[in-house]
Every structure is written in C-alpha cells, then in structure tokens.
Amino acid sequence: MMLYPPMKDLLKEIPSRYMLVNVVAQRARQIASEAESAGIPLDDKPVSMAIREVADGKIDVTTE
C-alpha cells in the first residue's frame, strides 16, 4: 500500500514527523467536530482530509 501523498512531500511542509502527526491529528479532530456540529456527513475520513490539506500547503505551521 502506497502512502499518498508521499511522506517526503508532507515533510516539505512540516519538517518534523512528530509535529506532522500532531498537526494532522489536531486538524482531523477539528474537521470531524465541525462536520458533526453542522450535521454534514463526511465522504472521506477526517485524517485523510487533514493530510491532503497539509500536502496542499493549506495549513501554516510556524515554529518559534
């Protein structure tokens, strides 16, 4: 099974695997919560949606 998008592409957006996991998990919970409160059924899993957002550069993570 191939991971899409590839890990190397995700790590271009977020430099640490550990940070990537935390960012994706937080965004996935947010997506699921927003869909539930709006009563919108999701066609895809929240984690998959969050990973695609990271790959597309839609999530801005700044490290201090």
Rank of each mutant, 00 (worst) to 15 (best):
V61E: 02
Y18I: 03
A35E: 11
I51M: 15
I40E: 13
D60A: 10
Y18D: 11
A50S: 15
E34Y: 02
P5I: 02
S37H: 10
S37R: 15
I31Q: 08
S16L: 01
L42I: 13
M7L: 14
P41T: 12
K12M: 09
L10T: 11
V47A: 10
A32H: 05
A25R: 14
S37A: 06
P15D: 11
K12S: 07
Y4R: 14
V24A: 08
R52W: 06
E64Y: 04
Y18T: 09
A28Q: 03
A28R: 01
V21P: 01
N22W: 04
R17V: 05
L42N: 11
T63A: 08
P5S: 02
A38W: 01
D56I: 00
I51Q: 02
R52C: 07
T62K: 15
Y4L: 07
I40R: 14
I40M: 11
A32E: 14
P46E: 13
E64H: 00
K8T: 00
Q30T: 03
L3R: 01
K58C: 08
A28L: 07
R29Y: 08
Y18L: 09
D43G: 12
V21F: 13
A32T: 07
P6D: 08
R27D: 04
V47C: 05
L3A: 04
D60E: 03
V23R: 03
K58L: 15
T63D: 03
M2W: 01
P5Y: 03
L20M: 12
R52Y: 07
D60F: 14
A38R: 15
A50T: 13
P41K: 11
T63H: 02
L11C: 06
M49T: 15
M19H: 01
E36V: 00
L10G: 10
P5Q: 02
V54Q: 06
T62Q: 05
S16P: 00
V47S: 10
L42V: 12
E64W: 02
I14L: 10
Y4C: 01
V54G: 06
I14N: 11
P15A: 06
V23E: 13
L11Q: 09
G57V: 05
V61N: 00
